[in-house]
Structures are given as structure tokens and as C-alpha cells.
Simulated assay, not measured.
Amino acid sequence: MMQSPGIALTVLSFFLLIGPLIFIHEMGHYLAGRAFGVKADTFSIGFGRELFGWTDRRGTRWRVALLPLGGYVKFAGDMNPASVPTPAWLALPPGERAMTFQAKPVWQRFLIVAAGPAINFALAVLIFMTIFAVVGEGRTPSTVAAVLPGSAAAQAGVRAGDRITMIASQGVYRFEDIGDLVRHRAGETLKMDVYRGQQQIHLLVTPETDLQRDRFGNEFRIGMLGIAAGKQVKVPLQFSELPGAAARQTVLITRTMVDTLWQIVSGRRSVRELGGPLQIARLSGQVATLGWLDFVYFMAAISINLGFMNLLPIPMLDGGHLFFYVIEAVRRKPLAPVAQEWAFRSGLALLLTFMVFVTVNDLGSFGLWRQLAGLIG
């Protein structure tokens, strides 16, 4: 087992990872707001007490705060979590009110809020484009070169020479796709389509669970079929191919997140697998020791995670705001202020509960609870 990185490298790696992602996310909101003529009062990286900052000529206060676990852009007129107009907003002169968030039509408010998650996905695409430009893209044919006797694939009837075209109702175009589709589906019975010569065969396969440890001692439950590819193929990409390849990789990671979340909600995966900021910090330090390529790939994955989680329809998150804007567009009027206030209070309570839960999970993954149990025992 490789020794874990020290605290200094872990903290530095975490800030190098999460700081730019928070900045990019909030910059999406800020730039969209400016494009629609909304004045930004505050652009904050972090929460709580301000460590340092400055005010630009447009009157926006740019600040770095004590708790670097998020950020926000406070637009003029956005006076409460539910963005409900207040008497103070109604009393503003018409010229000032026109520059506030609440004065904008619902479609512009929707785009301003959606711009944060959107730019996180765009950043991931840009990072993957860079990686593929440097190292190329794996395009190994999805033909099975060998089947391990007694493996999940062997029990399902897969033979050497079969070409896999579909797993779990999702298309397989490269051998690399197989691992991505199976890795997080250990013990789940999946539909699989293969071509044996010109004949299409429908199979059912249940990936075996392989408990693996990485070089840092972290444990992972990995789904395994027990098949091998032929000679691996790595293809250098033309510039025109980079956006498509990067978009496919972004969609693949997003789809994996959706599948994993659904497995947790449906009880097929343990909630103990959920991690929070402490887990991200530990992983960022570990990945940083592997080299810049692994670190920027990890940054792209976390950027997708940040964008995806913010789109969940939970009040207080961007997705919650977007959900209310859709309702407003359909009804042609917003929900009652009382309903919005209660929804956002509930959302805040849910998020705080979730943060406590994942922090307990993180501390458990560090072995804290086992150590305390040992001391008590």
C-alpha cells in the first residue's frame, strides 16, 4: 500500500481542485446576469466572514470568505432565497429596478440560473478535449478475445469472438464502454446483446462483485464480467473529432452518476458510499500524486458532479430555482410567496442534513468511528 499524501499536499490539492470549479460555476451565473443587464452586488468564493476582497467600478463586491465549500453571486433585487419581491424592491426607482434580477422575464432568470451548472459541463468537455488531444482516445473493438472460465460472462453464455453491442439497454461501440457500463452494476442482472458471426444473441449477465483496493488503500466494489479484449487500440484524434469525443465522455460520466444515484435511492447500493468534502479532499491529494493528467481528469469528473448535483430539483440548489421557474412559466405567474418560502426552508434543512450525513460517512471512511469504538471498548 502506498503511503497517503501529507496534510499539506491534500489541503493544497483540494483548494486547487475546488476553488477553480466554484469560481467557474459562479462565473457562469455572473456572466449570464451581465448579458441580461442584471447588476451583481456580490461575487463570493466561500461562505462566512470575508478574508479579503475588493469592489469593482460596477459596484460588485468580489470576496473570498472563510469557508471554501461553495460560493454565490448575489444579484440586485435577489433579496431572499426564494427570490420573492419585497417592499424594498418595489420601492426602488424604475431605473434601478430594471437592473435587478426580479425585473427580468422568467426565461432570462432561468438562463441565468442554468448558466452555472452549464459552464461546469462545458469545462469538463474542454478538459476532455485537452486530454484526448494529448493522449488520444481508446477505440478497442468490442470483440471478446477470451472468456475466463466460471466467470459471469461464461455463465451467461458469452464466447470468445462474440462482439458485444449492448449492455443494460445502452449501446457498446468500443471495448472501453463495457467497463464503464459494468463497473458500477455489480450483482445486477443486465441484458446483453452480442453478435456471433451474423447472428444476434440476447443474453442475461450478472456481473460479479470484485472488492478492489487502490494503491492508497481505498476499497471499491467493482462489477466484473471476466472477459478480455484483443490488442488495445489508441487513436489520435483530429481537432474536429475532439468536441464529439469529449461530449461522449461527459455524457458517459453523467449517466454513471444518474445510475449510481438511482441505485442508492432504490437500495441496491449502500448510502455509506456517499462522500462529501472531506472525501473529495482526500481523493484530490491522492490523485495529485499520480500526475497532472490524472488530476485534471479528476477535476473534470468533479466539475460534472458539481453541475449535476446543482441541477437536482431541490430548493436552495439551482435545480430547485429552475423547477419553480418552469412552474411559473406554465402557470404564467409564480407560486405564492408562502409556498416558496416553506419549500426553500425545507430544502435548506434537507441540505444541512445531507451535509451532516456525508461528513459522518467521510469520518467513518477515515476510520474515526472504529478508533473511537476501540478506545471505548
Rank of each mutant, 00 (worst) to 15 (best):
Q3H: 14
Q3C: 01
P5Y: 05
G6W: 06
I7A: 09
I7V: 13
L9G: 03
T10W: 09
L16N: 06
I18N: 04
I22S: 01
I24S: 02
M27A: 13
V38T: 09
G48E: 09
G59L: 02
A65T: 10
L66D: 06
L69G: 03
G70V: 08
S83I: 00
P85K: 03
T86K: 04
P94T: 09
F101H: 07
F101G: 10
K104C: 07
P105F: 13
V106L: 06
W107M: 09
W107L: 07
W107H: 13
V113H: 04
V113L: 06
G116I: 08
A118G: 12
I119F: 11
F121K: 01
A124K: 00
V125E: 02
M129H: 03
F132M: 04
F132P: 10
V134F: 08
R139L: 05
T140A: 02
T143H: 01
V144T: 10
L148T: 14
Q155H: 14
V158F: 03
R159L: 14
I164E: 13
S169K: 15
G171P: 13
F175S: 00
D177Q: 12
D177M: 07
L181Y: 00
R183S: 12
G187I: 11
Q198E: 15
I201E: 13
L204R: 11
E208G: 15
D210E: 14
R213G: 12
F220P: 01
R221G: 00
I222R: 01
I227Y: 02
I227R: 01
A228Y: 08
A228L: 11
G230P: 14
G230Q: 11
V233G: 03
P236H: 05
F239G: 13
A247W: 15
T250E: 01
V251M: 13
L252D: 11
V258Y: 03
T260D: 11
T260H: 12
W262H: 03
V265C: 01
R268A: 02
G285V: 08
Q286E: 12
D294K: 12
V296K: 05
F298D: 07
M299V: 06
A301P: 00
S303R: 02
L312P: 12
D318H: 05
F324C: 08
F324R: 07
F324W: 06
V326C: 08
L335A: 04
A336N: 14
Q340K: 12
W342S: 11
W342H: 08
A349I: 14
L352S: 04
M355S: 05
V360H: 00
S365N: 14
S365D: 11
W369F: 15
A373Y: 06
L375S: 05
